[in-house]
Simulated assay, not measured.
Amino acid sequence: MKELILVRHGKSSWEYSVNDKDRPLLQRGINDGHLVVGAFKKKKIRPDAVFSSPANRALHTCMIFLRSMDFAYADFQITNALYDFSGDDVLQFVKELDNGLETVMIFGHNHAFTHIANSLGSEYIDNVPTSGLVHLNFNTNDWSAIGKGSTSYTIFPKSLK
């Protein structure tokens, strides 16, 4: 069985005149990241690998999770394929994952993550919110063969406040 954990980056700031990849998190995004990872840790799931978009807001959200989970940075990678807003590159990335990885956590962006959650999961999600987490399961041992799976659970900041 393969497990995919999608985490949308935290709430970011539009206050600064920087390019899209350099936009930082707002304090709310930092706080929500801590809330969500706290709830996720209670699930006692340990990813085999973690991947993030190179965008500052996704990387910062990812670092909040990695530090809180005491995750080895050696098992973390940045990939441009996750700096995607349609979901096409994200899906291709997932389908090319090493089959030795059972549970993978990825940090990225909307609308890609809402699209992936809805096309591969069993529950319709109107919008994966900032700092939102969606856990998907697939009854296959081959990432390239994933199709419709099941949505195990979601963790959204609003439900934790």
Rank of each mutant, 00 (worst) to 15 (best):
M1S: 06
M1Q: 05
M1G: 05
E3M: 05
L4C: 03
H9F: 02
G10K: 02
K11T: 13
S13C: 03
S13I: 02
E15M: 04
Y16W: 11
S17R: 10
N19R: 15
N19D: 15
D20R: 02
K21C: 13
K21P: 04
D22Q: 15
R23P: 08
R23S: 13
L25S: 02
L25T: 08
L26Y: 06
R28T: 05
R28M: 14
R28D: 04
I30W: 11
I30R: 13
G33I: 08
H34F: 13
V36K: 03
V37R: 00
G38H: 07
A39V: 14
K41L: 12
K41P: 05
K41S: 06
K41R: 08
K41D: 02
I45T: 02
R46V: 11
S53N: 15
P54I: 12
P54N: 08
N56A: 14
R57M: 01
L59W: 01
T61Q: 13
M63C: 08
I64N: 01
F65M: 11
R67A: 07
D70C: 06
D70E: 11
A72P: 06
D75E: 14
T79G: 03
T79V: 10
N80Y: 08
D84A: 06
D84C: 07
F85D: 09
F85Y: 13
G87D: 03
D89E: 12
L91D: 05
K95I: 07
L97N: 05
D98H: 11
G100P: 11
L101N: 15
E102P: 08
E102F: 13
V104K: 03
V104C: 09
F107Y: 13
N110C: 06
H111R: 08
T114G: 00
H115Q: 14
I116Q: 01
I116N: 00
A117Y: 14
G121N: 05
S122G: 10
E123L: 12
I125H: 14
I125Q: 03
N127P: 10
V128I: 15
S131L: 10
S131R: 08
V134H: 02
V134C: 01
L136Y: 02
N139F: 15
N141A: 11
W143C: 03
G149W: 02
S150R: 10
Y153D: 05
T154G: 12
I155S: 01
I155Q: 00
I155M: 12
F156Y: 03
P157V: 11
K158M: 14
S159Q: 06
L160W: 10
K161H: 15
